[in-house]
Design a protein around this nucleic acid. Sequence first.
DNA 1: TATTGTTATACTCTATAACTATA
DNA 2: TATAGTTATAGAGTATAACAATA
Lengths: 150, 150
Amino acid sequence: MAEDLTLVDSLVQSSFLVQGVMRRVAARQDLSVIQMRLLGILRDREPGTLLLSRILELDKSSVTGLVDRAEKRGLVERVPDPDDGRAVRIKLTRGGRAIVTKGAAEVEAEIETVAAGLTDPQRRQLAGLLSRFASPPARPAVPGTERSPS
Amino acid sequence: MAEDLTLVDSLVQSSFLVQGVMRRVAARQDLSVIQMRLLGILRDREPGTLLLSRILELDKSSVTGLVDRAEKRGLVERVPDPDDGRAVRIKLTRGGRAIVTKGAAEVEAEIETVAAGLTDPQRRQLAGLLSRFASPPARPAVPGTERSPS
DNA sequence: TATTGTTATACTCTATAACTATA
DNA sequence: TATAGTTATAGAGTATAACAATA
Protein backbone atom coordinates (compact mmCIF):
# COMPACT_ATOMS: atom_id res chain seq x y z
CA MET A 1 0.00 0.00 0.00
CA ALA A 2 0.96 3.67 -0.14
CA GLU A 3 1.96 3.72 -3.79
CA ASP A 4 4.29 6.65 -4.30
CA LEU A 5 2.77 10.04 -4.90
CA THR A 6 4.29 12.55 -7.24
CA LEU A 7 6.78 14.94 -5.73
CA VAL A 8 4.29 17.78 -5.75
CA ASP A 9 1.47 15.69 -4.28
CA SER A 10 3.68 14.40 -1.51
CA LEU A 11 4.82 17.93 -0.69
CA VAL A 12 1.27 19.26 -0.63
CA GLN A 13 -0.04 16.42 1.49
CA SER A 14 2.81 16.57 3.97
CA SER A 15 2.33 20.33 4.25
CA PHE A 16 -1.29 19.80 5.30
CA LEU A 17 -0.19 17.12 7.72
CA VAL A 18 2.42 19.36 9.33
CA GLN A 19 0.06 22.30 9.44
CA GLY A 20 -2.50 20.06 11.14
CA VAL A 21 0.03 19.09 13.79
CA MET A 22 0.84 22.74 14.40
CA ARG A 23 -2.81 23.62 14.56
CA ARG A 24 -3.50 21.03 17.23
CA VAL A 25 -0.42 21.96 19.26
CA ALA A 26 -1.24 25.67 19.11
CA ALA A 27 -4.87 24.97 20.00
CA ARG A 28 -3.74 23.39 23.26
CA GLN A 29 -2.51 26.84 24.28
CA ASP A 30 -5.67 28.35 22.77
CA LEU A 31 -3.56 29.83 19.99
CA SER A 32 -3.79 29.76 16.21
CA VAL A 33 -0.97 28.65 13.92
CA ILE A 34 -0.27 32.22 12.91
CA GLN A 35 -0.02 33.34 16.54
CA MET A 36 2.36 30.49 17.34
CA ARG A 37 4.36 31.34 14.24
CA LEU A 38 4.59 34.94 15.36
CA LEU A 39 6.00 33.83 18.70
CA GLY A 40 8.41 31.52 16.88
CA ILE A 41 9.77 34.36 14.80
CA LEU A 42 10.28 36.51 17.87
CA ARG A 43 12.42 33.87 19.55
CA ASP A 44 15.58 35.32 18.09
CA ARG A 45 14.57 38.80 16.90
CA GLU A 46 12.77 42.01 17.82
CA PRO A 47 11.43 43.18 14.49
CA GLY A 48 9.17 46.13 13.75
CA THR A 49 5.70 45.90 12.30
CA LEU A 50 6.89 46.35 8.75
CA LEU A 51 9.59 43.70 8.86
CA LEU A 52 7.17 41.29 10.49
CA SER A 53 4.68 41.91 7.71
CA ARG A 54 7.35 40.97 5.17
CA ILE A 55 8.37 37.84 7.03
CA LEU A 56 4.78 36.67 7.48
CA GLU A 57 3.71 37.90 4.05
CA LEU A 58 0.83 39.83 5.58
CA ASP A 59 -0.29 43.40 5.24
CA LYS A 60 1.13 45.63 7.96
CA SER A 61 -2.37 46.34 9.23
CA SER A 62 -2.91 42.61 9.69
CA VAL A 63 0.26 42.49 11.76
CA THR A 64 -1.00 45.33 13.93
CA GLY A 65 -4.07 43.24 14.78
CA LEU A 66 -2.06 40.07 15.29
CA VAL A 67 0.31 41.82 17.69
CA ASP A 68 -2.59 43.57 19.41
CA ARG A 69 -4.16 40.25 20.30
CA ALA A 70 -0.87 38.69 21.36
CA GLU A 71 -0.08 41.72 23.49
CA LYS A 72 -3.50 41.65 25.13
CA ARG A 73 -2.72 38.11 26.23
CA GLY A 74 0.66 39.09 27.59
CA LEU A 75 2.67 37.08 25.05
CA VAL A 76 4.50 39.96 23.37
CA GLU A 77 5.17 43.61 24.06
CA ARG A 78 5.82 46.68 21.98
CA VAL A 79 8.77 48.81 22.95
CA PRO A 80 9.73 52.09 21.27
CA ASP A 81 12.58 51.83 18.80
CA PRO A 82 15.40 53.96 20.22
CA ASP A 83 16.70 54.73 16.72
CA ASP A 84 13.45 55.70 15.01
CA GLY A 85 10.64 57.61 16.63
CA ARG A 86 8.07 56.14 14.27
CA ALA A 87 8.95 52.53 14.86
CA VAL A 88 8.31 49.94 17.55
CA ARG A 89 10.13 46.77 18.39
CA ILE A 90 8.02 43.75 19.06
CA LYS A 91 9.45 41.28 21.52
CA LEU A 92 8.48 38.17 23.42
CA THR A 93 7.52 38.43 27.05
CA ARG A 94 8.72 35.77 29.44
CA GLY A 95 5.33 34.08 29.26
CA GLY A 96 5.37 34.20 25.47
CA ARG A 97 8.78 32.59 25.39
CA ALA A 98 7.65 29.82 27.72
CA ILE A 99 4.67 29.06 25.49
CA VAL A 100 6.60 28.99 22.24
CA THR A 101 9.32 26.82 23.79
CA LYS A 102 6.74 24.33 24.93
CA GLY A 103 4.88 24.47 21.61
CA ALA A 104 8.04 23.87 19.61
CA ALA A 105 8.87 20.85 21.74
CA GLU A 106 5.40 19.43 21.22
CA VAL A 107 5.48 19.95 17.48
CA GLU A 108 8.85 18.25 17.43
CA ALA A 109 7.55 15.30 19.42
CA GLU A 110 4.41 14.85 17.32
CA ILE A 111 6.23 15.05 14.04
CA GLU A 112 8.84 12.62 15.28
CA THR A 113 6.00 10.23 16.02
CA VAL A 114 4.71 10.50 12.48
CA ALA A 115 8.23 9.98 11.18
CA ALA A 116 8.75 6.91 13.34
CA GLY A 117 8.44 4.64 10.32
CA LEU A 118 11.64 5.99 8.80
CA THR A 119 15.07 4.59 9.52
CA ASP A 120 17.82 6.89 10.71
CA PRO A 121 19.53 7.13 7.32
CA GLN A 122 16.17 7.84 5.72
CA ARG A 123 15.51 10.63 8.18
CA ARG A 124 18.87 12.22 7.47
CA GLN A 125 18.25 11.90 3.78
CA LEU A 126 14.79 13.44 4.01
CA ALA A 127 16.05 16.31 6.15
CA GLY A 128 18.86 16.98 3.70
CA LEU A 129 16.63 16.97 0.64
CA LEU A 130 13.99 19.12 2.29
CA SER A 131 16.59 21.59 3.48
CA ARG A 132 17.68 22.14 -0.06
CA PHE A 133 14.06 22.40 -1.09
CA ALA A 134 12.98 24.73 1.71
CA SER A 135 15.98 27.02 1.31
CA PRO A 136 17.01 27.05 -2.34
CA PRO A 137 20.46 28.65 -2.66
CA ALA A 138 19.40 31.15 -5.33
CA ARG A 139 16.35 32.66 -3.72
CA PRO A 140 15.97 36.44 -3.99
CA ALA A 141 13.73 36.40 -0.95
CA VAL A 142 13.13 38.88 1.79
CA PRO A 143 15.90 38.71 4.38
CA GLY A 144 14.75 36.60 7.28
CA THR A 145 11.82 35.01 5.51
CA GLU A 146 10.27 31.72 6.59
CA ARG A 147 11.69 31.22 10.01
CA SER A 148 9.08 29.26 11.88
CA PRO A 149 8.13 28.12 15.40
CA SER A 150 10.62 25.35 15.67
CA MET B 1 25.38 27.86 2.82
CA ALA B 2 22.13 26.11 3.68
CA GLU B 3 23.52 23.96 6.43
CA ASP B 4 21.10 21.13 6.99
CA LEU B 5 18.12 21.73 9.19
CA THR B 6 16.76 19.10 11.50
CA LEU B 7 14.10 16.84 10.06
CA VAL B 8 11.36 18.63 11.95
CA ASP B 9 12.61 22.10 11.02
CA SER B 10 12.86 21.21 7.36
CA LEU B 11 9.34 19.77 7.40
CA VAL B 12 7.90 22.83 9.11
CA GLN B 13 9.67 25.26 6.82
CA SER B 14 8.73 23.42 3.67
CA SER B 15 5.13 23.26 4.85
CA PHE B 16 5.05 27.05 5.12
CA LEU B 17 6.67 27.33 1.73
CA VAL B 18 4.11 25.04 0.10
CA GLN B 19 1.22 26.74 1.87
CA GLY B 20 2.54 30.07 0.62
CA VAL B 21 2.58 28.79 -2.95
CA MET B 22 -0.98 27.57 -2.60
CA ARG B 23 -2.05 30.84 -1.09
CA ARG B 24 -0.65 32.85 -3.97
CA VAL B 25 -2.11 30.52 -6.59
CA ALA B 26 -5.55 30.55 -4.95
CA ALA B 27 -5.41 34.33 -4.58
CA ARG B 28 -5.06 34.66 -8.34
CA GLN B 29 -8.59 33.24 -8.57
CA ASP B 30 -9.59 35.38 -5.60
CA LEU B 31 -9.84 32.25 -3.49
CA SER B 32 -8.42 31.22 -0.13
CA VAL B 33 -6.39 28.06 0.43
CA ILE B 34 -9.31 26.41 2.19
CA GLN B 35 -11.66 27.18 -0.70
CA MET B 36 -9.19 25.75 -3.20
CA ARG B 37 -8.71 22.73 -0.98
CA LEU B 38 -12.47 22.22 -0.88
CA LEU B 39 -12.59 22.24 -4.67
CA GLY B 40 -9.65 19.83 -4.75
CA ILE B 41 -11.45 17.36 -2.54
CA LEU B 42 -14.55 17.51 -4.72
CA ARG B 43 -12.60 16.60 -7.83
CA ASP B 44 -13.24 12.90 -7.29
CA ARG B 45 -16.09 12.82 -4.75
CA GLU B 46 -19.52 14.18 -3.85
CA PRO B 47 -19.43 14.10 -0.05
CA GLY B 48 -22.04 15.39 2.37
CA THR B 49 -21.47 18.19 4.86
CA LEU B 50 -20.53 15.83 7.65
CA LEU B 51 -17.97 13.83 5.70
CA LEU B 52 -16.45 17.06 4.41
CA SER B 53 -16.14 18.32 7.96
CA ARG B 54 -14.20 15.19 8.87
CA ILE B 55 -11.90 15.43 5.86
CA LEU B 56 -11.18 19.11 6.45
CA GLU B 57 -11.11 18.74 10.23
CA LEU B 58 -13.62 21.57 10.59
CA ASP B 59 -16.88 21.83 12.45
CA LYS B 60 -19.89 21.02 10.27
CA SER B 61 -21.19 24.56 10.69
CA SER B 62 -17.90 25.88 9.31
CA VAL B 63 -18.39 23.66 6.28
CA THR B 64 -21.87 25.03 5.78
CA GLY B 65 -20.42 28.52 5.51
CA LEU B 66 -17.56 27.41 3.30
CA VAL B 67 -19.94 25.71 0.89
CA ASP B 68 -22.36 28.64 1.04
CA ARG B 69 -19.68 31.00 -0.19
CA ALA B 70 -18.44 28.61 -2.86
CA GLU B 71 -22.00 28.02 -4.04
CA LYS B 72 -22.70 31.73 -4.18
CA ARG B 73 -19.76 32.03 -6.55
CA GLY B 74 -21.01 29.19 -8.70
CA LEU B 75 -18.11 26.86 -7.91
CA VAL B 76 -20.07 24.06 -6.21
CA GLU B 77 -23.68 23.01 -5.89
CA ARG B 78 -25.73 21.13 -3.32
CA VAL B 79 -27.93 18.35 -4.63
CA PRO B 80 -30.31 16.32 -2.47
CA ASP B 81 -29.01 12.90 -1.49
CA PRO B 82 -31.36 10.37 -3.11
CA ASP B 83 -30.76 7.85 -0.32
CA ASP B 84 -31.23 10.13 2.70
CA GLY B 85 -33.74 12.91 2.94
CA ARG B 86 -31.64 14.81 5.49
CA ALA B 87 -28.45 14.81 3.50
CA VAL B 88 -27.04 16.76 0.59
CA ARG B 89 -24.29 15.94 -1.83
CA ILE B 90 -21.81 18.67 -2.58
CA LYS B 91 -20.36 18.61 -6.06
CA LEU B 92 -18.23 20.73 -8.32
CA THR B 93 -19.85 22.78 -11.04
CA ARG B 94 -18.20 22.97 -14.41
CA GLY B 95 -16.74 26.35 -13.51
CA GLY B 96 -15.45 25.02 -10.20
CA ARG B 97 -13.76 22.14 -11.95
CA ALA B 98 -12.10 24.47 -14.41
CA ILE B 99 -10.73 26.61 -11.62
CA VAL B 100 -9.37 23.75 -9.55
CA THR B 101 -7.79 22.14 -12.60
CA LYS B 102 -6.03 25.37 -13.42
CA GLY B 103 -5.05 25.95 -9.80
CA ALA B 104 -3.58 22.48 -9.44
CA ALA B 105 -1.52 22.96 -12.58
CA GLU B 106 -0.18 26.25 -11.30
CA VAL B 107 0.69 24.84 -7.90
CA GLU B 108 2.47 22.01 -9.68
CA ALA B 109 4.42 24.40 -11.87
CA GLU B 110 5.44 26.70 -9.03
CA ILE B 111 6.56 23.88 -6.80
CA GLU B 112 8.48 22.32 -9.66
CA THR B 113 10.29 25.62 -10.03
CA VAL B 114 11.29 25.60 -6.39
CA ALA B 115 12.42 21.98 -6.76
CA ALA B 116 14.49 22.78 -9.82
CA GLY B 117 17.70 22.46 -7.84
CA LEU B 118 17.20 18.76 -7.29
CA THR B 119 18.37 16.09 -9.66
CA ASP B 120 15.92 13.50 -10.96
CA PRO B 121 17.06 10.76 -8.58
CA GLN B 122 16.82 13.22 -5.71
CA ARG B 123 13.29 14.13 -6.68
CA ARG B 124 12.25 10.49 -6.79
CA GLN B 125 13.89 9.90 -3.46
CA LEU B 126 12.22 12.89 -1.86
CA ALA B 127 8.82 11.92 -3.24
CA GLY B 128 9.25 8.39 -1.96
CA LEU B 129 10.30 9.43 1.52
CA LEU B 130 7.56 12.03 1.79
CA SER B 131 4.95 9.57 0.59
CA ARG B 132 5.81 7.28 3.42
CA PHE B 133 5.79 10.24 5.77
CA ALA B 134 2.54 11.74 4.52
CA SER B 135 0.69 8.43 4.52
CA PRO B 136 2.09 6.27 7.32
CA PRO B 137 0.86 2.70 6.86
CA ALA B 138 -0.50 2.36 10.38
CA ARG B 139 -2.65 5.45 10.62
CA PRO B 140 -6.07 4.99 12.21
CA ALA B 141 -7.29 8.07 10.42
CA VAL B 142 -10.64 9.10 9.10
CA PRO B 143 -11.33 7.41 5.76
CA GLY B 144 -10.56 9.83 2.98
CA THR B 145 -8.55 12.24 5.07
CA GLU B 146 -5.95 14.61 3.64
CA ARG B 147 -6.69 14.55 -0.04
CA SER B 148 -5.68 17.92 -1.37
CA PRO B 149 -5.94 20.18 -4.45
CA SER B 150 -3.38 18.48 -6.53
C1' DT C 1 7.87 63.59 0.37
C1' DA C 2 8.57 58.97 2.12
C1' DT C 3 8.24 55.74 5.84
C1' DT C 4 6.27 53.46 10.11
C1' DG C 5 2.49 52.34 12.24
C1' DT C 6 -2.49 52.50 13.50
C1' DT C 7 -7.52 52.94 12.69
C1' DA C 8 -11.90 52.15 10.26
C1' DT C 9 -14.25 49.03 7.64
C1' DA C 10 -15.66 44.83 5.42
C1' DC C 11 -15.28 40.16 4.44
C1' DT C 12 -13.72 35.25 5.21
C1' DC C 13 -12.97 31.62 8.39
C1' DT C 14 -13.99 29.22 12.53
C1' DA C 15 -16.34 27.26 16.75
C1' DT C 16 -20.31 26.77 20.04
C1' DA C 17 -25.02 26.35 20.89
C1' DA C 18 -29.54 25.88 19.46
C1' DC C 19 -32.57 24.59 16.04
C1' DT C 20 -35.24 21.79 12.01
C1' DA C 21 -36.09 17.77 9.55
C1' DT C 22 -35.43 13.10 8.67
C1' DA C 23 -33.98 8.29 10.15
C1' DT D 1 -33.42 9.14 20.16
C1' DA D 2 -29.83 9.86 16.85
C1' DT D 3 -28.14 11.91 12.63
C1' DA D 4 -27.56 15.54 8.77
C1' DG D 5 -27.63 19.98 8.14
C1' DT D 6 -28.49 24.99 8.97
C1' DT D 7 -28.80 29.34 11.64
C1' DA D 8 -27.36 32.72 15.10
C1' DT D 9 -23.67 34.59 17.23
C1' DA D 10 -19.06 35.88 18.41
C1' DG D 11 -14.35 36.26 17.64
C1' DA D 12 -9.88 35.73 14.90
C1' DG D 13 -7.56 36.72 10.66
C1' DT D 14 -7.02 39.37 6.52
C1' DA D 15 -6.86 43.32 3.03
C1' DT D 16 -7.85 48.15 1.45
C1' DA D 17 -8.00 52.87 2.27
C1' DA D 18 -7.26 56.71 5.01
C1' DC D 19 -4.84 58.73 8.63
C1' DA D 20 -0.99 60.56 12.19
C1' DA D 21 3.62 61.05 13.39
C1' DT D 22 8.33 60.98 12.33
C1' DA D 23 12.28 60.87 8.96
